[in-house]
Structures are given as C-alpha cells and as structure tokens.
C-alpha cells in the first residue's frame, strides 16, 4: 500500500521534471555574457552607460546616489556621471523629450532600468541577449539609420558604440532547415572598418556595460543572495530544533 503512495508521489514530480526542460528549436543562439558584478567592472560600465546610452535612454528607476553602492562617492558621481541632473538623489532621467525621440527613431527609446530582466527568455539570460545585441550591429543601407542587428532585426536604434567597435558586415547563407525549407542564416559578422578598440577589447567593454545594466535591473541582488545564506542558516538551526521537538513528543505515540 505504502509503495503505491510513493509511486504516485514520484510520478507527479518526475513528469514535471522530465518534460519541462525540453525547449522548442531556438531561433537564435545568444553568446553567453561574462557578467562580473565587481566594483571595477560596474564603475566602468556605469561610465559607458552614462556616456553612450543615457543621451537617449532613461534609467528612470535608478537614483544617481545608488551608485555609491558600487564604490563611488557622491562627489565622484556628481563630477563624472551627472550631466542632466542637479541632485545626486535624482533618478537617471533622459534629457531627450519623448515626443522628439518618437519622431526621430519611430519609437521612443525604452527605459533601460529593467531591460536585463525583461530580455531574459528561453534562449538565455537578459545579459546574454544584451551582450549579443551590442556586438551584433552591422551595416545595412536599406535601413533609415544605416544599421541593422542580428538579434533585433530592423531595430530602430543606430549603433551607439560604433566608434569603439567600428563597422561590421553580415554574411548570410541560405541553408536547408532539414524539413526541405530554405532559410537565410547568419554565417558570420566581419569587421570592415576597425574602430578605436580591438575586437577583444570591445567585447570586454561591452561585458562591463552589460554587467552594469544587470546590476541596475536589481541593485539589491547581491544583498539578496547574501541575506539568503543567513536566512537558510537560521532556518536550518530551527529545523533541527523543531525536528528534535517533534521526535520528543512523538516517541510516546504507539
């Protein structure tokens, strides 16, 4: 009898476990982002973000003084990172007016505070998406901005980091998808005009920028994990005690 109870229990748990990781064929392969949440990377990322992103995109949930959490002083923040705000307690709002932006780009550039969380999918984390996206711009004369992107086809945004990366060209091949259909697939991206940085240097800079965006999506994440260990430790002690207590009472039940 008992065996049956256990079998049903195993059944319930295993059906979920076996079937759920199965994914549909991915449309896109994302590069894994080397996210580093140390102060040096985050500070460099913050500098890149303020210089290259904040002109058009807001980070309207993040207050400048939150950057003290990544090892900057309020003076450093004021002197080096605040271009469009007066007070260090203000949020990173964008100088660009939404209406103007909509006119220029077709869509108002989205707020980026939560983009790393929003871009997560079955294909990878939000960081992977951003890392691939920021390295995936290529020249396309058919687009109004002259740029296109491998992970975000027909994106409205031009390549904001082109001076660093240079210009890329995309090579596509047409392949059979195994079901008799011909599909256009990206073969590779090639640098045709070098930028200020070598490709490895550029990747490292993008990694820092992405790390900062990940941090910005949830500034409490490091605290959260740290606190988690403490909570689990306290609960473990309580679990042992309550188990002993339960045993002390139940030894009389025959």
């Amino acid at each position: 009898m008992k065996l049956l109870d256990k079998l049903l229990c195993v059944l319930v748990l295993s059906v979920g476990a076996v079937v759920s990781p199965v994914q549909a064929a991915e449309a896109l392969r994302l590069d894994s982002a080397p996210v580093r949440l140390d102060n040096a990377s985050l500070q460099n990322g913050a500098k890149l973000f303020v210089n290259y992103c904040l002109n058009c995109h807001g980070a309207s949930f993040l207050r400048y003084n939150r950057l003290t959490q990544i090892g900057l002083t309020e003076e450093q923040i004021k002197d080096n990172l605040m271009f469009s705000a007066d007070k260090v307690g203000e949020q990173m709002k964008v100088a660009l007016r939404r209406e103007d932006a909509k006119q220029w780009f077709g869509v108002a550039p989205p707020d980026l505070t939560l983009v790393a969380r929003a871009r997560a999918s079955e294909s990878g984390t939000g960081a992977d998406w951003l890392y691939t996206y920021l390295r995936g711009f290529y020249r396309d004369d058919t687009r109004p901005t002259g740029w296109n992107n491998v992970v975000f086809p027909n994106v409205g945004m031009p390549h904001a980091l082109w001076s660093l990366q240079g210009e890329q060209e995309a090579r596509f091949v047409t392949k059979d998808d195994g079901h008799g259909k011909q599909v256009r697939q990206l073969e590779k991206l090639e640098i045709t005009k070098p930028g200020l940085l070598m490709p490895e240097e550029y990747d490292a800079q993008v990694a820092d920028l992405v790390s900062f965006i990940v941090w910005m999506g949830e500034p409490a994440q490091a605290t959260r994990r740290g606190l988690g260990w403490l909570v689990l430790a306290a609960l473990s002690v309580l679990a042992v005690l309550t188990y002993l207590l339960k045993r002390a009472y139940w030894k009389d039940v025959h």
């Binding site: 909570v231 306290a234 609960l235 002690v237 309580l238 005690l241 309550t242 002993l244 207590l245 002390a248 009472y249 030894k251 009389d252």
Partner: peptide, 23 residues
C-alpha cells in the same frame, strides 16, 4: 519523565524561533 528534555527543547526552539521571527 520526558518533561525536562522537552522543556529545554521547547525553550531552545522558542528562542531560535523568536530570533527568526524578529528577523
């Protein structure tokens, strides 16, 4: 018979439980 060990356990559980509760 079991009173003292139970009471000690109860006190320990209450103390740790109280600390977790404060947390």
């Amino acid at each position: 018979c079991a009173d003292s060990s139970r009471r000690q356990l109860m006190a320990a559980t209450a103390a740790v439980g109280g600390a977790v509760g404060v947390g």
